[in-house]
């Protein structure tokens, strides 16, 4: 790998506490350019908080993050031109249709009108949203919301994609399309960071992985290296602990 190229996303000492609870604890992470990076961790591990801080949607208590050569907090405009973001559970322009939302965002980003129209049409086609042409986003299903979110993240042809739980509630057919789009994006030199708790998916798609638990990164590196001889799922469970509950406790279940 070319070490002169800046990493796609570099995170240094990002820290966030909400009151007493430390959500993300001094995390360092580097996503090399051209990598397909998976961030995995149990619920409440701090993935969303970390990604929000990394892309500039949440102000960290301490630490810094940069996209390519642009610092997210001191040079936000350039950083956000490089970035395509799909946050989890945030509102869209709810009372617009999918196409209107794409057009709206294209104009916000200062794209040419012709470019916006062409890309919006293609994105709607690829995301299989043309059938719901006149449906407002507020009436979209969860899966459709993910797809229109991803479409808006791709619209301005970013260099780095940061996706929080992109496959949640997406049907298998659409998921296959999304996977193809993302893989092609990486092959063409883009970088993808996605969070998920579906291990099989991360194992299948990603070349690099970081495991987060309780606000810290407990392991990171190439997928093959992190999982070793076993599956990623087993490694994950051994890293974050299986929890205190054992199945033995539920002896009454199904009797």
């Amino acid at each position: 790998m070319d070490h002169l190229r800046p990493p796609a996303l570099s995170i240094h000492g990002l820290h966030k506490a909400f009151g007493e609870k430390v959500s993300v604890n001094q995390v360092d992470l580097e996503v090399p350019q051209g990598s397909f990076f998976g961030l995995v961790g149990p619920n409440g591990a701090g993935k969303t908080t970390l990604l929000s801080m990394a892309v500039g949607l949440l102000r960290p208590d301490a630490g810094a993050s940069a996209v390519l050569d642009a610092d997210v907090w001191t040079d936000p405009l350039r950083a956000k031109t490089y970035l395509g973001v799909l946050p989890d559970g945030l509102a869209m322009p709810e009372f617009l249709t999918g196409r209107e939302a794409l057009t709206f965002l294209g104009r916000l980003r200062g794209l040419e009108a012709e470019v916006v129209d062409t890309r919006a049409q293609e994105l709607l086609e690829v995301m299989d949203l043309l059938g719901a042409e006149r449906t407002l986003i507020v009436d979209y299903s969860t899966g459709m919301r993910k797809k229109i979110g991803l479409a808006t993240a791709l619209l301005h042809n970013p260099k780095v994609l940061v996706l929080d739980e992109p496959f949640e509630a997406v049907d298998p057919v659409s998921a296959l399309t999304l996977k193809r789009i993302l893989t092609r994006f990486v092959v063409q030199g883009g970088s993808v960071v996605l969070s998920s708790h579906v291990m099989a998916l991360v194992e299948q798609l990603c070349d690099t992985v970081a495991v987060m638990s309780d606000g810290v990164v407990v392991a990171s590196g190439p997928v093959a290296q992190v999982r070793g001889e076993t599956s990623l799922e087993e490694t994950f469970v051994s890293l974050v602990g299986a929890g205190t509950g054992t199945v033995d406790g539920l002896s009454w279940l199904g009797t």
Binding site: V55, G56, L57, P76, L77, K80, L83, V85, P87, G89, L90, A91, M92, P93, E94, L105, L108, R109, T152
Partner: peptide, 12 residues
């Protein structure tokens, strides 16, 4: 618009 504010942030 509630959390739709994130788009304003992302597009500066």
């Amino acid at each position: 618009d509630g959390t739709g504010l994130w788009l304003t942030l992302q597009t500066g």
